[in-house]
């Protein structure tokens, strides 16, 4: 069936089988490979995208469920060609190692600091508790999200 999804601000019309997962449409039909697949069961969160601004796990969402809605992926994080503060903070605070969970972590972090400009360590840990990382022990991911919040606060 034909569906239209707004992805990173651009409408895309694709013809998909009803069983096709959103993550597969993003990756294979639209070429947006920054969204990853890790567990197939909504457990690890590396497939997280923002659906109408809310983090969802795109490996357990049918693409047809996103028809007429807006999706944001890591490729849409940059603002006017500049890195989003959360992207800069992940590099600055060494918030990534293999990079596989990173796009999802940054998307979740970006929503958190929008909703809560001054998050505590517990706030951050709770916000990312649906996203696994095997490399960092989360220490520097927490630092990176906190740094991004501070950067945004300082610039506004």
């Amino acid at each position: 069936m034909e569906i239209t999804i707004s992805v990173n601000g651009t409408d895309n019309t694709v013809d998909v089988e009803p069983r096709m997962l959103l993550v597969d449409v993003l990756r294979t039909r639209l070429g947006l490979t920054g969204t990853h697949i890790g567990c197939d069961t909504t457990s690890c969160g590396v497939c997280t995208v923002l659906l109408d601004g809310t983090p969802v796990k795109s490996c357990t969402l049918f693409a047809v469920q996103a028809d007429g809605r807006a999706v944001k992926t890591v490729e849409g994080l940059k603002q006017n060609g500049d890195l989003h503060p959360i992207q800069a903070a992940f590099k600055e605070a060494h918030g990534l190692q293999c990079g596989y969970c990173t796009p999802a972590m940054m998307l979740v972090g970006s929503v958190l600091i929008e909703e809560n400009p001054d998050p505590s360590e517990d706030d951050i840990r709770w916000a990312i508790s649906g996203n696994l990382c095997r490399c960092t022990g989360y220490i520097n991911i927490v630092k990176a999200i906190r740094l991004a919040a501070e950067t945004v606060a300082a610039s506004s």
Binding site: T33, K91, H94
Partner: peptide, 21 residues
């Protein structure tokens, strides 16, 4: 030194196995 490889990862431009078509 901040990691040189990070620029591609933070922009979703890593090239993992399943990304190869």
């Amino acid at each position: 030194v901040r990691r040189i490889e990070d620029d591609r990862f933070i922009q979703g431009a890593g090239n993992y196995l399943d990304d190869i078509v």
